[in-house]
């Protein structure tokens, strides 16, 4: 049996060389977002994409009313490409969660990123009791209930005291009515209006500061005056706000109207964040831990 003939090998080589010569620019332009429209006289158009990153699975992601993907256990973010430049309506929803909507502009060769947030339609408020009821039978012959102070309540309650009155050292008291900075994002409360400024490197400006060009300041729109605010745990693009009629979470991103989701509505609520992680609400003497 003869080895592969020179002619056959040359033929293979030429064939693969042609594929390479044609394929390389095709793959490069394709990767850049150029699309060949077969139905439009082989017209080449530039496209862009959307990258929606969530932190939850089984979320329906719709673009212009069409569900494009459901997030999975591993893949919680999606990349939608081949989108013609223009404005797209994004809707993110899951049963039991408040939905998130945004109009985002897609630019050629660029991926427009969005980081939706979804909190429960009815966040779970768990009361932390002031007093713990214990059984004193171990100490006396007759069994009776004895109330004693709940140290957890006391610890959380300290967070709600005005700064000068705090006697217990708490790791972080994270709220302030005036300014707050997380990373390079600075938020100022100016007469009830929140002004968000990017203080970092220009090249690292978060995508929500930029659309055509990057801006220096974003104003968080609220119907009523912001009484206090803080960064939402783990995010520097979300704020938790206390306004007159409740506690809400708002995104900073103002590329279209800012999504605001309710934590609790009603008068007299205040909130604190402990250790940058846990959210607590207080109304009157009652303190609640919140599961969103």
């Amino acid at each position: 049996m003869l080895p592969l003939s020179r002619n056959k090998r040359r033929l293979y080589l030429i064939f693969f060389a042609i594929i390479f010569i044609i394929g390389t620019p095709f793959f490069i332009f394709n990767a850049k977002g150029y699309k060949l429209n077969l139905h439009d006289f082989f017209n080449v158009s530039k496209t862009g994409g959307l990258y929606i990153s969530t932190d939850q699975s089984r979320i329906d992601i719709s673009v212009n009313g069409e569900i494009v993907r459901k997030t999975g256990i591993i893949q919680k973010s999606i990349f939608v490409q081949n989108l013609k430049p223009g404005v797209y309506q994004i809707n993110i929803s899951k049963e039991g969660l408040q939905s998130w909507n945004k109009s985002l502009r897609v630019f050629p060769e660029i991926v427009t990123e969005a980081r939706p947030f979804l909190i429960k339609s009815e966040p779970v408020l768990t009361e932390i009791p002031r007093l713990l009821i214990g059984d004193s039978s171990a100490l006396s012959s007759t069994s009776r209930n004895v109330s004693k102070k709940n140290s957890e309540y006391d610890l959380i309650n300290v967070l709600f005291l005005p700064p000068g009155l705090k006697s217990v050292s708490v790791k972080t008291a994270t709220t302030s009515p005036y300014t707050k900075m997380l990373g390079d994002v600075l938020v100022k409360n100016s007469a009830g209006k929140l002004h968000v400024l990017w203080k970092g490197e220009k090249d690292s400006t978060p995508n929500y500061f930029c659309e055509n060009a990057c801006k220096l300041e974003i104003i968080v729109n609220t119907v009523s005056k912001v009484l206090s605010f803080d960064f939402f745990p783990g995010r520097n693009d979300l704020l938790i706000l206390s306004v007159e009629d409740g506690i809400f979470v708002s995104e900073i991103d103002d590329r279209s109207s800012q999504n605001v989701q309710k934590v609790v509505s009603g008068f007299g609520y205040d909130f604190r964040i402990k250790d940058g992680k846990e959210i607590y609400l207080k109304k009157g003497l009652k303190i609640y831990s919140v599961t969103l």
């Binding site: 394709n30 850049k32 994409g49 990258y51 660029i110 991926v111 090249d203 400006t205």
Partner: peptide, 15 residues
């Protein structure tokens, strides 16, 4: 960050 905004950057690992 500038490169990572490009469709090219997203497509590179996929491709």
């Amino acid at each position: 960050d500038k490169f990572n905004e490009l469709v090219l950057s997203y497509n590179l690992p996929i491709l």
